[in-house]
Structures are given as structure tokens and as C-alpha cells.
Amino acid sequence: MIETLEYAVDNRELILSAIKPEEHESIIKRAKDTWVEFEPEASEERRLVGIDSSWNSIPYQGFYIYAVDAVAVLGNGKYLVKPSFEVGLGTLAVRSGEDYFSSPELALESKGMEYEFEQAKSCLGSADCVLVDGSILARYYDRKQHKEGSFYDRAKELMAQEGLLYVSKKSYSNAALHGTLGDMFYYNRMSFDPGFSSPHIDRTGVSVSYVRLARDSPCIRIEVPGRVGSSDIQRIMSLLKGSSVDGYPYVLRLAHESGKISHDEMLSLANLLGLEAELGGRQVLGE
């Protein structure tokens, strides 16, 4: 570790040059050109539901035990539908072409998404707007590369749904501004006022906009199935405004808190299954 720190001290400029300060100005300008200042008025109270999934696993010799949980939470803290979850034991392999390789992360994330889909579908119609944490596009392309399972049919199906939004706090996509860094980076720096970037339509037919709901709050990335225009984004902003804190929808914060599976909870789960005697991954690594 110490050698990397030493290197970073000596080569600070070099490392930071990846940000390409020379292109910075021009991209910020491009970002400004697509930005629409808009101060949303909180609309009448709407029924929003936030969906998030979480997963965790403990490695054993030859298998993992894992848990996946997806929840749909209303602004009053209650579940709108029964949570979808799975607890199991396996190798967590993922197929890539003809090959299988073990990737608990990818495997569990996929499961998490399947359950999120399940939750989202059961919520549609019972809420004014269903907010799912994350980016469907990121997942879609990620899975496409790995040609993973049944995922995309599901994704496709949801992408076409109305009353559904994907919201992410972090995004690394540069599809809109084509900068060295993600679009989020530039939109967060070009202004501090509420507003949004005019929607960029992905080739899968999903519209993407970066949105700042309140002054000085960070941008969030919104994905809406289908081709939408500025007035739709404005409507969505008004919908979210009244129930957001620091520019982020409260129902998603709640969904995250409710679904979260901690390492301690995994340990209790293992304990419950009588697996505590097995060597855990940490012991294997000698930690």
C-alpha cells in the first residue's frame, strides 16, 4: 500500500490529468446549453413508492450463503406490497457465452433486480409513481455484455411501463456530454440552481435527464421509460419536490434503509442455519 501512496504524492498532476482540464471548459459549456432552469412547485400530495434491493453473502469453502431482499416502501414507512426475497446456498456462477464464472456480485445483483422488477410490477397501479433506485440502463448494458440470463426481457418489459422512474444518486455514464468523466460530474458543477438537462433519449427508448430539485442540492439522474419531453420532466420534478430531502426522494432513502442486509445480519443467518462451524471467508484469508 505504502508504495502506491508514495507514487500518488509524486505523480499527483499526472493522475489528475485524466480529468482533462483542457476539455473541462467546453464540456461545462455544453452542459449549460442543455440545462433548463426550473424551480418546481411541490404538487399536491402524491402517493410515491420507493423500491430498492440489497444483497449480501458469506463465502464458505465451495459455496456461498446469500440473502437477497427487495422492498417497496411508502412515505409513511410501510410496505406497499410484501417484500420479495431469497435466502440460499450456492456457487453464484454467472454465464458468459459458453463459460460460467463465479461472480457473487453480478449474480446477486441480478437476483436483486429480478425481485425489484417483481416489486415494481406489483406496485404499478397502486401508486402515483413508482421510483426504483438505480439505473435500468446501466444494468441493461452491463447484463448485455455478459449476456446474462433472462434479464433483458424483463428489463425491456419494464422500460415500457408508465408511472415508473429510475432514480440514481451516482452515475458514471457519459452518454449525454461525452466527457472524460460522467455527465453527473459536469452537471453538478455548472450550476447550483434547480433545473434539469433536456432529456437525452437512449437508443433503447429510455429518456434520461439530470435533475436538481432544490437549490444547492446534488443532481440526481432520472430515467423514464419512453420518449419524454421537458414538460414531462417538469411534471416529474413537481411530483418529487414535496417529498424529497436534499434533492433526493425520501421513499428511496426509506427503501434503502428497510432493505439493507448488514454483515451482522448475515452472521445471524449463518448461525440460524447452523453454519457457524464452517470456515468463513475471512478465516480462509487468514484475516
Binding site: G75, N76, G77, S243, V245, Y250
Partner: peptide, 11 residues
């Protein structure tokens, strides 16, 4: 903002 949304949440 937090006060407004949190009062509706029983948890």
C-alpha cells in the same frame, strides 16, 4: 424538508 417528510413516517 426532512421535518415535513419524516412526520408522515411512523417508523
Amino acid at each position: 424538508e426532512a421535518k415535513r417528510v419524516a412526520t408522515k413516517n411512523v417508523r
